[in-house]
Structure formats: structure tokens, C-alpha cells
Design a protein around this nucleic acid. Structure first.
Lengths: 235, 235
DNA sequence: GGCCTTATGTGCGGTATCGAACGGACTATC
DNA sequence: GATAGTCCGTTCGATACCGCACATAAGGCC
């Protein structure tokens, strides 16, 4: 066994597998460090590896018109990157960008597909995860349309905190603007508003969540909706 | 055989199946008429039937905050409704609303799952379709965020024309506002602009596409992107 | 210390869309 | 031909963003 139980258990999809299936999969995994702003997938390329984040987390980003971008999904240790392989499509659907440094387990696409054949449980779990991801895509679409920036920012901070497992996030306004599809100035304004409410504090690329409950109140309901969906389908 | 070749061929997913798989499936299907504004699925209910539109078409709609709504997908004879069954989840993810009257083939969820077991080809086709749907979800999210209403309206008209197989669409401004997540007045303004450019004409719930090429120019690139994705993955 | 890069704040005019209300025109029904 | 219902057009002020430009500040590096 290449990896300790502690490592394996820190990805929720993997830890929900029966131990023999999990061990088989882990034996084919290698541990990698995801580093901030690293691009794991470029759209339309072939998927070479799939990733199960354990510490780090990843943004799924859709480019549009060659200039703008929008984050459509967020993947931490509750999910995986490369899920479309289970649909028999090995073409990357979205850009995948590391937004939180940390560890992940990765496995080559071919090994992954082989393990998938051997484990109906793995198939079942990942299919359900894909369902959750779809719901999140739609939720994000509607959220982006209707909710004010401040609420969207609060939602993003909460989602990210869950995946970073820390109150301290390493992220700049420029990056947030990119993710949320707005101007940097818009982020400055929204972040300042949250600051004035004593919900967060920040300084040169470090954001600290000060009041999680307050932040939940300031965020739109989408945060809770996403969480509920995950729990209902995979919990 | 319950249905003629002509009927079966009019859904593109079904017509891409080998004839024996298709015939088995069709033998379990019944033909139904979809009527305008009919609700086929309500979110969080159980999926009782899946639908393969042949003439009609269906909107997938995500409600948000209990008041607003946003269309996140459009299903005509190029697709199917109820696709999430292949993920092993029988809970409806989105509202499904008939937006174009016309025929469809439907099959009970249990029969569908049984056929799915028997036909790896069916599984493969539908998984690829699900991939396309995911890409469209993300594209719609970004489109909704960045593109002006007039372009989004043009895109919607084109997508709908493809699925209605007709230049005449039966849809009111109120409905369009609901779909695109804007005020009715916004639709009136955008539609009027398209009218002034001689791209469409309309009157009391009937819209006529006058100049398809011009409409494509007025629409955002998302229309073409979606089409390309479908062709690449399923074509 | 001095310099450069990066990160954040501010100010200005512009605009797409919002919410609400009202007016007019066509259709269906009786 | 009166009445009610549906559909479309217009106007009003408000606002959440936009693009652009520039100011301030903090940290790293020589």
C-alpha cells in the first residue's frame, strides 16, 4: 500500500468506497502537490490524469469570446477532476486551475478507466458526484445572473473555506475578479463591504474569514443549496 | 413494431442507435403529444418517464430564491429528457417545461433502465449526450453573464428554430422574459431592435424568423459553440 | 535606503438592466 | 357590441455594474 489511511481518507469520494476497491485504486495513484495558479487542464485537450484533491482545490473555468472567463465549478476533497471520463469522453470540457495549493492523488486516465471497469461501486459514486456537479453548474448559472456581487463573493469564500479547510485563504482581488467574471474594482468594493461588516479581513492576497455565520447570512442561498444537494445525493 | 421508421428516425439520439437496439427501445415507448406550457418534471420529484422529443421541445429551468427562474438547457429532437437516470439518480434536477408543442416518445424509467442494461451502445450515446448537455450548461452560464440581452435573445431564437424545425415560433414576450431571466420590458426592447433590423417579425405570441443569417450575426457566438460541441461529440 | 513589482483604493462618466406603473391594441366570450 | 383578458409599447427614476485612469501602499530585491 503506497498511501496511508490518513491520506486516503481525506478525499471524500475515495473514502466512501469499500476498502478493497479503494485500495486497488490507491495502489495506482501517485501523490502530487498542486501549486497555486497551476493549469491542470486546458479546454479541448485530452485528459491524461484524473485528480482527487486531498488538500488543494481546483476551479473549473469556462472561457468566453476569448477574453472573459467564468468559474463554473469548484473541486476540493469532496470531488474529483476529470469526471467526464466516466462518460466515455476524454476531452477536457473546462479549464482547470489550481486555486488552493495542497496535495492531491492522481491516476492516469487509462488506469482510472481500468479501475472503473473493476469497481461498480466506484462507478456508482462517481456518477452521483457528476449529478451533483451538474446541479452546481446550473445553480452557479442562476446565481451569477441574479445575485449581487457581494453575496456571490461571500458564497465563494464559504465554498472555498470548506475546501481549503482553513480560515486563511490565499487569493488576490485580481484572481477573484477573474473567477467571478467582474472587474477587480468590483471585488474591492464588495470585499470592503464585507470588511466593514467585520466578516472578513484581508491584506495583500491573504483573506481571513472572521465571522463564518455572518458570512453565511451575507451570502446568497446558493451556498446552502449546493451543500444540501451534495448531502442528499452523496451524503 | 409499434412505430414507423419515420417516427423513430426523428429523434437523433435514437436514430444513431443500431437498428436492433433501437427497435427494442421503441417497442417499449409510447408516443405522446407535448402541449405548450405543460410541466413534465418538477424539481426534486422522482423521474417517472424519460422523453425523446421528436417534434416538440422542452426547456430545463432552474428556479432560484423561489421567485426568479432561468433556463439552463433546451431539449429537442437532438436530445432527451431524463438523462440523469443514467447516473443512477432518479431525482429530477431541473424543472422541465414544454415550450414547443409536438410529439415525443416516452418510456417509463424502469423500462428505460432495463433497456440501458441491454444496450451498451445506448449507454455510450447517452453518456456522450450528457457531456454535451454539461458543456451547454456552462456555456449558458457564461453567456447569461456576459452577453447583451439582444444577442442572447437571438441565440435563443436560433436554438429554438432548430428544435422547432420551423420559422414560426409560438412564444410570448412574457415567456421569453421568464426563460431568459429578465423583465418583459427588456424582451420588448430587444425584440423590437431585432424587428427594426428586419431579422424577425412578431405579433401577439407568434414570432417569425425572417433572416436567419442576419440573426446569427446578431446573436452571440454561443449558438455556434453549442452546435460545434454537439457535432464534435455526437456528430 | 532606493527601486520595482504587486496589491489595493478612488474617482468619473457611461450603460444595461431593474421595478413599477400606465396606455393601447388585439382577441375571445358572451 | 360591450366586457374582460392577453399581449405589447413606453416612460420614469434607480442602481449595479462597466471601462478607464490614476493614486496609494506594502513587500521584495539590489
Amino acid at each position: 500500500m503506497t498511501f496511508s489511511q490518513a491520506t486516503s481518507i481525506s478525499n471524500r469520494l475515495l473514502s466512501s468506497l469499500p476498502s478493497n476497491d479503494r485500495d486497488r485504486l490507491l495502489a495506482n495513484c501517485e501523490s502530487v502537490e498542486l501549486t497555486f495558479s497551476e493549469v491542470l487542464y486546458r479546454a479541448d485537450e485530452l485528459i491524461s490524469h484524473v485528480y482527487f484533491p486531498t488538500g488543494g482545490f481546483i476551479s473549473l473555468v469556462t472561457p468566453i469570446d476569448g477574453k472573459a472567463n467564468l468559474e463554473v465549478g469548484l473541486i476540493g476533497n469532496e470531488g474529483m477532476l476529470g469526471i467526464t471520463l466516466i462518460l466515455g469522453v476524454d476531452v477536457v470540457p473546462f479549464y482547470a486551475l489550481v486555486h488552493g495549493s495542497g496535495s492531491a492523488l492522481r491516476i492516469t486516465a487509462s488506469s482510472f478507466l481500468r479501475e472503473l471497469e473493476h469497481s461498480p461501486t466506484l462507478q456508482a459514486v462517481l456518477k452521483r458526484y457528476l449529478y451533483v456537479l451538474m446541479k452546481q453548474l446550473a445553480q452557479t448559472a442562476a446565481c451569477t445572473r441574479f445575485h449581487l456581487l457581494e453575496a456571490r463573493l461571500a458564497r465563494w469564500l464559504l465554498m472555498t473555506q470548506d475546501r481549503a479547510h482553513s480560515d486563511h485563504l490565499h487569493i488576490t482581488h485580481v484572481f477573484l475578479a477573474y473567477i467571478l467574471g467582474v472587474r477587480r474594482v468590483g471585488i474591492t468594493k464588495a470585499a470592503n463591504s464585507l470588511l466593514n461588516k467585520n466578516l472578513i479581513s484581508y491584506q495583500r492576497g491573504d483573506i481571513v474569514i472572521r465571522d463564518r455565520i455572518g458570512l453565511e447570512a451575507a451570502s446568497c442561498g446558493c451556498y446552502q443549496v449546493d451543500k444540501d444537494t451534495y448531502r442528499r445525493i452523496l451524503g
